[in-house]
Amino acid sequence: MSMTQPTKPVNDAGARLLSGARWRWYEVLFWVAAIALFFVFGDFIPGIPTRLMLLSEIISLGLLALSIDLVLGYAGIVTLGQGAFFGLGAYVAGLMAKNGMGAFPLSDPLLGLLAAAAVSGAAGFVTSFLVLRGSDLTRLMVTLGVALILAELANQMRWLTGGADGLQGVMSSPILGIWDFDLWGHTAYVYSLVVLFVCFWLSRRIVHSTFGLSLKAIKGNALRARAIGVPVNARLVAIYTLAAAIAGIAGALLAQTTQSASPDMIAFHRSADALLILVFGGAGYLYGGLIGAVLFRVMQDVIGNITLQYWQFWLGLVLVLLVLFVRGGVIGLMEGWWNRLTRKGDAP
């Protein structure tokens, strides 16, 4: 399963830095499990309820967390505004589906995805220059501010977005004119999973390239990175734009699979939830957001079914305990166990 290296490492240090690009057995296991879920929860086995809609929702959330991982976990940009690009993507895809009136190819979901990625990416590019200014706290405020502005725009532009009521009449047409979205969520899940994998594969290639390594250098010490010749600002603009485009795709996925776009898709809680999920799953691994999203939503669903009114309390408690006692999130925890098990004292 090893991929060809983009550049041949010239020495041991280089080889070690780029060795992360190899696909490990547990990564393969992760994706096989994701495919297996389709058959387990797809209403094929009597007695097991369909949960594919929940799983599709998790994929969208996980993809949003993945996009935050790119900017936070790799480039060290603290952001509370990724939800803005998510919501923007949702509205773009929703509007495409609505105005395409179900006619191929204008309302095709794939085209909607591309448009959402383009618009969100453009918005990310423009706002990235704001993010370059200032340090962590300033960035937090700036990204939050941008998100709030976009959310209020969505609320006020009623002629376009339907205001607080959300966009009406979103009708996703069949993918490539063949696969229609069904009530059971079969199409939605397969579609979401394929899109997730493509975005993940792309992100994985990027973070394990020399470009990705330079991001880590910037995260470690921006001043020193600049001193050794890394064009810090250009790199940050590039990754921020890319992450915005991926967040846009995540939003588009949600809008298309639920056939709706409403102001809460662009609301602050999306950014906050996704950031929480990433910290919970483990930042800087790419898988952290995905695993965090699965655990977060499943816990929410299970606790919500036990106690309808107080699930937020229990979920909050679990999260506080996990963040307190488990450094590096769930993946960090598993890594710790793995290292102890294989008696590898220190990390590679």
Partner: peptide
Amino acid sequence: KDDTGVADISKRLAQELVVN
């Protein structure tokens, strides 16, 4: 079911109520 105040989650809940 708790709508959690979010439209897309409510839609998913409705789907699950119907299908499951």
